[in-house]
């Protein structure tokens, strides 16, 4: 059943990677600017080197149901997702552009709330939205609203997701699994005494301080596919193994118990306000402290180390056993067995 698009092709896992590698990338003969990072690298952003400057460019589409969820909404998601993609490439965001597709019949009040939220996130990062486009499709053709956001940034030193070297440490800048689980829980009728909020947040300020400390060898934005997908990408591209210590992974108790309830692995759940940072051993502690000084980095932790290897992610479990962390296939689904 290879000839039809399935929902899982958008799940951020291996099926999506195969679709992009086998169908999309080979379609374009010109897929990079001379000397820059292009499409084949499938990194969080691409680079345009112009007389000594590294312009970083990224684009992403955002669809989420419901549009407004605890801790965020589709507007904040679009802005933060784009800013974070630029940030993990080492780029200060310069400007954003968004095109919004609306369903006929959508109350204008909903659009007003979304663009207002987008503005608040733009203000928080201090970056302008300088271009845009609006389209309307017939009722029923689209679920309410969809946003595509593009961003341009400037990087003094470009950081890729494939620069890890044995001995480096791995840092998670926050607790994992909050975003996707807060959405899944609404659908599965889970309630929480303290509401489980999405972690959607802009991380450029934090990463700017991290880059100032130095020693960063790789970074990645673990959205769909979770940290499992992102770490597998990083290990494969860097040609190393990553050893993860389960005991050190920052995860909120409510996320752990809700994930256990639904038979889900928190490592595979999407995050929207967490970055993965690979850093030289000597600088790891200093970088960790820089992250923790930021309001979105309070729960950051050193969660693993990089070893010689061939692209595997290995987890040392709570009881001292070891297992391979696999690249997720598609989007995680509640299991009963």
């Amino acid at each position: 059943m290879k000839d039809v698009i399935k929902l899982e092709h958008g799940g951020g896992g291996r099926l999506m990677r195969e679709l992009v590698e086998e169908v999309i990338i080979p379609a374009y003969r010109r897929n990079r600017v001379e000397g820059g990072i292009g499409l084949p690298e499938m990194d969080d952003g691409a680079t345009i080197p112009i007389d000594g400057c590294n312009i970083v460019f990224t684009t992403d589409a955002y669809t989420v149901r419901p549009l407004f969820f605890p801790g965020g909404d589709i507007g904040r998601l679009a802005i933060c997702g784009t800013v974070n993609d630029l940030a993990v490439m080492g780029a200060a965001p310069l400007a954003l552009a968004t095109s919004i597709v609306l369903e006929e019949g959508l109350p204008i009040e909903v659009l007003r709330r979304v663009v207002d939220s987008m503005n608040r996130s733009l203000e928080e990062v201090g970056v302008p939205l300088i271009a845009g486009d609006t389209k309307v499709v017939e009722h029923g053709e689209l679920d309410k609203l969809m946003i595509n956001a593009s961003g341009v940034g400037l990087a003094e030193r470009v950081v890729t997701d494939g620069g890890l070297r044995p001995g480096d440490r791995i840092i998670f800048t926050g607790t994992i699994g909050n975003h996707q689980l807060s959405l899944l829980s609404i659908r599965e009728g889970l309630q929480f005494e303290a509401p489980l909020e999405s972690d959607v947040a802009p991380l450029w300020d934090m990463i700017r301080e991290v880059l100032r400390v130095g020693g960063v060898t790789a970074m990645k934005d673990p959205t769909r596919g979770g940290v499992a997908g992102a770490l597998n990408d990083m290990a494969r591209k860097s040609g190393v193994d990553i050893l993860l210590w389960e005991e050190e992974i920052p995860i909120r108790g409510v996320v752990r118990s809700a994930a256990e309830m639904l038979g889900l692995d928190p490592l595979e759940l999407a995050n929207e306000g967490v970055a993965i940072i690979g850093v030289e051993r000597e600088k790891a502690q200093e970088v960790l402290e820089a992250v923790r000084r930021d309001r979105y980095g309070r729960d950051a932790a050193i969660v693993g180390e990089v070893l010689e290897g061939k692209g595997r992610v290995i987890l040392e479990t709570l009881v001292g056993g070891r297992r391979v962390v696999r690249e997720p296939l598609g989007s995680p689904m509640p299991r009963i067995c």
């Binding site: 929480f192 303290a194 489980l196 108790g253 752990r256 118990s257 809700a258 256990e260 309830m261």
Partner: peptide
């Protein structure tokens, strides 16, 4: 029922 850390469900 509380499944820990305030995660509840009917």
């Amino acid at each position: 029922v509380d499944f820990g850390y305030g995660t509840t469900r009917d």
